[in-house]
């Protein structure tokens, strides 16, 4: 049971990372740097509880706010660039954050421990939940609650004018700007919100793992965070969620294969993408499901061919 709780906790946190990439992706951009915001959220939230004695909630909030503010500051210049250029520029940002934390030393002695970011030695003793007897199941509840809040916001966003705006920007930026959409504002908003979501994931992660260092927010995390939405599909926010469930789930469930585990994992990714090149939950599937959900009476007849 505890094992499933652990897997679910990681799925919850990584799903948030996936949603963060997805939020940038629906305005037609690809960010490869969400792990930088994840790191900011993790370090800030970790410092808040471990060094400054804050409650978990304001600590997480602080992580989100700092990540979002940095997202805003980076977003304005960065969103001048697009496509693959943006992917590499944001990856550069993620690496700068990571290398900065590799050099940050801000520690204090609390009892017999040295607490705080300690350069290459990492940031130990973020034991807020364990010291307070919060069980893994309860913490999973907190993670899922946070995820639920994010998902509800996404749900609202997809139905709002803003969501339509972002999609319009993805479809055709020029056309969108011609019908009076402030393209830059929409994109910067998306980027800032995405940074906040990644920061939340980081804050939740550091309290789960009790430890964070620069190695944990490097290239592998960047790759993981973009695989969830692409593998899961960009048709709906369900895509990145499903992507995280399946990919993290596969990592664990293939353990019976021992040495061949990672090889089969890679092969399964290739095969899945060949059959569903737009991800598990693609636009066509979303339309079909929407069709099923809609009452039959309201369904308009298909136009004659």
């Amino acid at each position: 049971m505890e094992y499933y709780i652990a897997i679910a906790s990681i799925i919850g946190i990584h799903a948030m990372l996936g949603l963060s990439v997805y939020l940038v992706a629906i305005s037609g951009q690809m960010s490869f740097g969400q792990q930088g915001f994840f790191a900011l959220g993790a370090y800030l939230a970790g410092m808040s509880t471990a060094l400054w004695g804050l409650h978990l909630l304001p600590a997480l909030a602080l992580g989100v706010v700092v990540a979002a503010v940095v997202g805003l500051l980076v977003g304005f210049p960065a969103l001048r660039v697009r496509g693959l250029y943006l992917a590499i520029a944001t990856f550069g940002f993620g690496e700068i954050v990571r290398l900065a934390f590799l050099n940050v030393r801000y520690t204090r002695r609390i009892g017999d421990r040295v607490v705080g970011p300690n350069a290459s030695e990492g940031f130990r003793h973020v034991r807020y939940i364990y010291d307070r007897g919060i069980t893994p199941l309860e913490y999973l509840g907190i993670i899922l609650l946070a995820l639920a809040v994010v998902v509800v916001l996404f749900f609202a966003l997809e139905r709002s004018k803003l969501g339509a705006t972002l999609r319009a920007v993805e479809e055709d930026e020029v056309a969108a700007s011609m019908v009076g959409i402030n393209v830059t504002r929409a994109k910067v908003f998306g980027f800032t919100a995405a940074a906040g979501v990644a920061g939340l994931a980081g804050g939740l992660f550091v309290h789960y793992s009790s430890y964070i260092d620069h190695d944990m927010v490097a290239l592998p995390l960047a790759i993981a965070s973009v695989t969830y939405p692409i593998f899961g599909g960009l048709g709906s926010f369900v895509g990145p969620l499903l992507g995280a469930v399946v990919l993290v789930g596969l990592t664990e469930s293939l353990r019976a294969l021992h040495d061949a585990r990672e090889i089969i994992y890679g092969a399964l990714i290739i095969l899945t993408m060949l059959f569903r090149p737009r991800g598990l939950v693609d636009e066509a599937l979303v339309l079909r499901v929407k069709g099923w959900l809609r009452p039959r009476a309201v369904r308009r007849p298909a136009p004659a061919p």
């Binding site: 094992y3 897997i7 893994p136 664990e252």
Partner: peptide, 12 residues
């Protein structure tokens, strides 16, 4: 060599 996997495996 991955923290997330380590945290799951220890529970396993």
């Amino acid at each position: 060599c991955n923290a997330e996997q380590g945290l799951a495996v220890v529970k396993r």
